[in-house]
């Protein structure tokens, strides 16, 4: 008897809990469009809570409003690769129509993406690519062709120092495929266009702003006639810029590279970094959502297509290319907020 009454009481408690959570849930589910007519797109950054990806999401939500689709933006709060896999699995279970991932690792993400496609989900990568063969992803939304980024980096500095002088590159990690590909393009451009620019060495900053600043200080001390520094990651660039400014050699040593407008604004305004290179993050998110919606509703053959406000975007067999990189300078930097 005692047994019975205990279970009954517990059952009552359970029902109460269910009633509370259930009510809370349904009340709020109703304000999300859940009918199957609305396309549901999952947009996953490498990690959430950083300005660059938040800007991508702003563009994505703009596209979502235009197209009348629902874009869920979610990702790992820390750089933990397995979290991305879990979210992909969850989105498949929640019957998303499109899943677009900026993978932290090209191989680790491959298996869940492949399974997602098997379930009939449209799979995209953006910002960074997954292994195209093992992931079977449909398209990679590429922010800027590697080649053009490398060329722009060289041209920005080459023009500023009149095509001659000693320079160094500060990179993030020795094994990053992106950074190594950019540097290959830079070497080619230097050899063709600026034979009088000497590249002294390539320094590895371990994706650490403090270390990049230290490396730049050492180089500045060792070479009084140094003319330019490339910091080709968003950590290396502000580190190098700070070192040059602190040494009082702004303008004499030109710093440039890849960086975020909000971080680099002060250095652009004081002349340490007259110009630097990146792409428009909002446009990248905007384009990714447009491509996802287009693929979910039909075909996207190779060629040039218009996606909302972005005209004549190049689509190849495996990539969509946002376009040439953006060069930020004193005139345009205030238009960007990321």
């Amino acid at each position: 008897m005692k047994h019975r009454s205990g279970s009954v009481r517990s059952l009552g408690f359970l029902l109460l809990v269910l009633a509370v959570t259930g009510c809370g849930g349904t009340a709020n589910h109703s304000d999300l469009p859940r009918d199957r007519g609305t396309l549901r797109i999952g947009l996953m950054p490498k990690l959430i809570g950083i300005a660059y990806f938040t800007a991508c999401n702003r563009g994505a939500q703009e596209a979502a409003a235009e197209l009348g689709v629902e874009v869920t933006y979610d990702g790992p709060p820390v750089d933990k690769v397995e979290e991305q896999n879990k979210i992909v699995d969850r989105w498949v279970a929640q019957e998303f129509d499109v899943i677009a991932v900026a993978p932290n690792d090209p191989e680790v993400i491959a298996e869940p993406l492949r399974l997602a496609r098997e379930e009939g989900v449209v799979t995209l990568t953006w910002d960074a690519d997954a292994n195209p063969t093992s992931s079977q992803r449909q398209l990679f939304v590429n922010q800027a062709p590697i080649e053009l980024v490398g060329f722009a980096l060289v041209d920005v500095l080459g023009e500023a120092i009149g095509g001659e002088g000693k320079t160094v590159i500060i990179t993030g990690s020795a094994t990053s495929p992106n950074q190594n590909a950019w540097m290959t393009a830079m070497h080619r451009r230097l050899a063709h266009r600026y034979p009088k620019i000497t590249l002294l060495e390539t320094l590895v900053s371990d994706e650490d702003q403090g270390k990049a600043a230290q490396l730049a200080r050492d180089v500045l001390a060792a070479h009084p006639d140094l003319r330019g520094i490339w910091g080709i990651t968003s950590m290396a660039l502000p580190g190098a810029a700070k070192a040059v400014r602190d040494a009082g050699r702004s303008g004499q040593v030109i710093v440039t590279g890849l960086g975020l407008p909000n971080v680099m604004r002060e250095y652009v305004k004081d002349g340490t970094v007259p110009r630097f290179v990146l792409w428009n993050a909002e446009d990248l998110g905007y384009l990714t959502v447009h491509v996802g919606a287009r693929l979910a509703r039909g075909e996207l053959p190779p060629g040039r297509h218009d996606f909302g406000r972005l005209q004549q975007i190049e689509v190849t067999e495996s990539e969509v290319i946002l376009g040439p990189p953006v060069v930020f300078d004193r005139a345009n930097i205030d238009q960007y907020d990321f």
Binding site: V20, T21, G24, G25, A27, N28, H29, L32, D74, K86, R90, A93, Q94
Partner: peptide
């Protein structure tokens, strides 16, 4: 709990 990500309780 993972799937309850859209569950909001005011």
């Amino acid at each position: 709990l993972q799937f309850a990500d859209q569950l909001k309780i005011t």
